[in-house]
Design a protein around this nucleic acid. Sequence first.
DNA 1: TCCCACTCTGTGAACGTTCACAGAAAGCCG
DNA 2: CGGCTTTCTGTGAACGTTCACAGAGTGGGA
Lengths: 332, 332
Amino acid sequence: MKRPTIHDVAAAAGVSRGTVSRVLNGDRYVSTASRMAIERAIAETGYILNRTARSLVTQRTGSVVMVLSEPHEKLFEDPNYSTTIRTAIRGLATRDVSLVLMMAGDDGDRERVIRYVRGGHADGVFLLSTHAGDRMVDVLVELGVPAVAQGAVIGRESQIPYAAADDREGARQMTRYLVEQGRRRIATITGPMDTPGGIQRLEGFTDVLGRKASKKLITHGDWTQLSGESGMARLLQDTPDLDAVFVASDLMAAGALSTLRMAGRRVPEDVAVGGFDDSSVAVSTHPPLTTIRQPVARAAEEAVRLLLAQIDGQRPDGPVILPTTLVVRESA
Amino acid sequence: MKRPTIHDVAAAAGVSRGTVSRVLNGDRYVSTASRMAIERAIAETGYILNRTARSLVTQRTGSVVMVLSEPHEKLFEDPNYSTTIRTAIRGLATRDVSLVLMMAGDDGDRERVIRYVRGGHADGVFLLSTHAGDRMVDVLVELGVPAVAQGAVIGRESQIPYAAADDREGARQMTRYLVEQGRRRIATITGPMDTPGGIQRLEGFTDVLGRKASKKLITHGDWTQLSGESGMARLLQDTPDLDAVFVASDLMAAGALSTLRMAGRRVPEDVAVGGFDDSSVAVSTHPPLTTIRQPVARAAEEAVRLLLAQIDGQRPDGPVILPTTLVVRESA
DNA sequence: TCCCACTCTGTGAACGTTCACAGAAAGCCG
DNA sequence: CGGCTTTCTGTGAACGTTCACAGAGTGGGA
């Protein structure tokens, strides 16, 4: 029992391939009689379009590849990825575009992604957590394939449109809040300085604190919970009298909380802790985190929109920056 | 500038299409002279195989679809999914098979998945968190498409091979441990009773407790943190003197911890809490969770193996059940 | 009435592979 | 030397669509 083809439908409807193809693709020059006959024939035969055959001639695949650029050990700790992936799948599904997931954790992976895209196996690329100076990005830009990023790709802001939260302003909100709460020695644990979140959240921090943001009050993490623990330990050592810390992600903040607890500091009485992301861990820590909510789902939706627009041949309307909001819980 | 095709390679190497195709597919009847010429030609022209064209004739796509069957609100809270997805991608990549991600949160989604598979757009299906009685599964089985599941598909254990942790024995380990610690009134919060984890972890619990596992000591959650909170509240109301609770997932256990804290019960002094999964939340709670580690990555690897074997036309060697281990932290 | 525009339809070619087949060349055995 | 097997190669057809083109029918305006 072979699957029915467009020929079978045409025969059943008493028309030709061409006409069937026209209704399949929404061409307007089809008589209502033919259209109805064809629709009946499709239902009767159980015909399903063969996208492979279509792709061969249209040079379009109807799929998009999402590239996750985290090293393997670390990947996916961040619950935000899940939201982004889910939202993107849904957004693309409305246009019947499917989502292929690839990793770019090492050079072999990146090579594979390049081959995949260069081979024309995807109509567009959705970049996630791409670090500065990624060679793969150079190749993609050179190829001119439609691309979009969730969070800016550093150094490629003008070539690859993106959707992101307003990291800098979010960091300002949190820092201002800590200041307003009367905190005087405010430290920060940043993200990696080759990611937009790492850079801009630190910028927001220094925007508010000015020269009070001394070197000793700044340390760097890599988004992992473990790096939050060790970062907090370093800060306590360098500045034992700190009374607040702005941690650039909730996951790192969870790590910072454990270190503080082990050091016998009460949160928020002795040290206030501010996170960033409002991810699911924010409510499972003790105490629950005061944090900055970023509209991850909205950003993913916007990114999908930007990507589809490019695939349709339109010029994307620049980056989309979304506002953040302060969520006060108990840690600060 | 068109991309080079197999014709261009053939011309550059001074052979015919057929011979090029043979080296591309690893056929042994090719002279070393031709083979070398062709390999040079491929490198020089920058040729990349067009999988679409290949798919059209071979009826194989070189891709597999992973289906996530959680309702949209809830999906992805569980960090284990991330591990599974990542591991599956890596495993498939070694065979140059790509992974398409689809959701099956509502009927529309499921319909889309069916259309996709029926249309022959994937060589196999990787089922994640599929609930009992899912109509989509019936269709897939009927279609006879290679399929595999992470965690048994209830009612389809014999038709769809799977890889899973030994949920029942894991639950026994935890329950035994609680008993050994001298706990006398042990309750449990289960997962949904249409999932294997929900059913089997409860079975393990009653295996150990026998008739001591009274109705009042059993309540059901849906894997979410919130359901852990409310489940714990119900238990405290029904059985105020309980001194331990086995929660069928870490995420729900995190919820249970908050409820206990709000109720003024100390963990583990007043109430011991045992989780299940050893997911990332287990270490961010306070106190850190004593839990059951399941080899999620191993299970994903095995599932990929089972799937690829079927795609290669072999009979899968039955379900793979992997051992769990007790991880003692501070909550019990 | 004639011409043109518009609507609708069918047909052949093309997309870039693989596959089956046929046939050439080479080696071996009696 | 003749025939048989093995190795190697080229060719036409096929996979299931879309697309461009040509042509038929219809209606309206000059």
